[in-house]
Amino acid sequence: MKKLFSLIFMFSFLFSCSILAQRKEKTKEINQNTAIAETPKLVVGIVVDQMRYDYLTRFWNEYGEGGFKRLVNEGFNCKNHHFNYAPTSTGPGHASVYTGTTPATHGIIGNEWYDKIADQDVYCASDSASNSVGTTSDAGKMSPHRMLTSTITDQLRLHTQMRGKTIAIALKDRGAVLPGGHTANAAYWFEGGENGLWISSSY
Rank of each mutant, 00 (worst) to 15 (best):
S12L: 12
D115L: 09
T34G: 00
A95Y: 08
M162F: 09
G175N: 05
D54C: 03
A186V: 10
K116C: 02
S12F: 12
L71Y: 12
V43F: 05
S130I: 06
G196L: 11
V122C: 07
S137D: 01
H159I: 04
K28V: 11
L14K: 00
N77V: 12
T183A: 10
I108H: 01
Q22I: 13
M51R: 14
A139T: 04
T34K: 13
K28H: 12
E38S: 11
A139C: 05
T166F: 06
F5V: 12
A176Y: 02
Y85E: 04
T90A: 12
T88N: 05
K116W: 12
I108D: 00
D115C: 08
G181L: 09
K26G: 02
D127K: 04
G93Q: 00
L158D: 07
K3I: 10
T88D: 02
K3Y: 07
A168C: 02
P87F: 06
L14F: 13
S150E: 15
M51I: 15
I169S: 00
G66E: 14
H145W: 09
A168D: 03
S128E: 13
H94Y: 15
F15S: 15
G107M: 02
G100A: 01
I117F: 03
A35I: 07
S201W: 04
S132P: 08
G66L: 13
Q50H: 13
L178M: 11
L71F: 15
K141F: 04
A176G: 05
G67N: 09
K69I: 07
K172W: 07
P92C: 04
G45N: 08
E112H: 09
H159G: 05
Q32H: 06
G175R: 06
V177F: 04
L156A: 01
Y53S: 14
H81W: 13
T136N: 12
G91S: 15
R23L: 09
H82I: 14
